[in-house]
Design a protein around this nucleic acid. Structure first.
Length: 280
DNA sequence: TCGCAGGTGGTCG
DNA sequence: CGACCACCTGCG
């Protein structure tokens, strides 16, 4: 006797320019974990799922999702409606460095993530390391987020809403171990509750605890501003090593990105980031 | 022990 | 303005 309910799944074939490792390990998201079989389990938009990809048949299978979920959530989340072959051709043309980076992370997709979740995640990410960022996000969700169900033997929670977080105190958040970022989150939650979510880049940058780097991540990962080019320590390093730019001069790096990558800057950033992170 | 990790805000000069 | 520098926390 098994009490397992039949878990739904949905598959789509013919997906090119796609690789789960590239997507989930290029620094854009924090709620996905790799399984021993190479698949990834995680949550987005309140849905915990498992994604696997068969390279031979170019088939993506999403467990715990049906066709409706795929059309309404996952296709957009995985940016499957965008032609990445064209993006890559355009970036690689006349840039041999970018050509190498793209060959390395050929399956990257810029996830279209939830705006509030992205704001929270990247405020937590500042001056922090990835394991701890992930831990903070999970703890925050467990303690204050909505329970959305059990899946694969785990209880899953959403990131708490702005309304819930706006009423928390730093003391409430102490168990999450956010450090000095806790007061930023409370401030931002209060701002969002009273004034609504930011609608443009300037409003994002005006949030407490959001500087140029975090703002660029937010506009790139959740506001579809694909010319955003977040410059963190890794990007500064790679732009120095590969393009000979001054590592200390962030504005010069941003200027170079605008001039050379233009409206595709965000994609370029992801290819370069994955390239340098994987090689170091 | 102490520097560091996918930065930012505050304070000087 | 541009250049520091403190800052929560946990790990090596």
């Amino acid at each position: 006797m098994s009490n397992d309910k039949q878990i739904k799944k949905y598959s789509v074939s013919g997906i090119r320019d796609f690789h789960l490792d590239h997507i989930f390990d290029c620094g854009q998201c924090f709620r996905w974990e790799k399984e021993e079989d190479g698949s990834y389990t995680g949550i987005a938009f309140g849905r915990p799922v498992n994604m696997s990809f068969d390279v031979e048949t170019e088939t993506l299978t999403i467990e715990n999702a049906d066709e409706k979920d795929f059309d309404e959530i996952w296709s957009g989340y995985l940016h499957l409606d965008r032609d990445y072959a064209r993006i890559k051709d355009s970036l690689a043309e006349s840039d041999p460095i970018m050509k190498d980076a793209i060959e390395y992370g050929y399956g990257i997709r810029l996830l279209r993530q939830d705006l509030w979740e992205t704001i929270v995640s990247f405020i937590i990410s500042q001056n922090n390391n990835i394991p701890r960022i992930k831990g903070c996000i999970e703890k925050l969700s467990e303690l204050f987020g909505e329970f959305v169900g059990e899946y694969r033997g785990r209880r899953w929670y959403n990131i708490p809403t702005a309304e819930v977080m706006s009423k928390l105190t730093e003391e409430d958040l102490a168990p999450v171990r956010l450090g000095y970022r806790a007061k930023y989150l409370i401030s931002v939650a209060q701002s969002v509750t009273t004034k609504g979510l930011p609608a443009d880049a300037d409003q994002v940058l005006a949030l407490k605890g959001v500087g140029p780097k975090v703002a660029s991540c937010i506009t790139l990962f959740s506001m579809e501003m694909y010319d955003s080019f977040p410059v963190d320590v890794w990007m500064a390093r790679v732009m120095n090593q590969l393009y000979g730019l001054d590592e200390k001069n962030r504005p010069a790096i941003e200027k170079y990105a605008r001039e050379h990558f233009g409206e595709l800057g965000g994609f370029a950033q992801q290819y370069l980031f994955y390239y340098i992170r994987s090689k170091s």
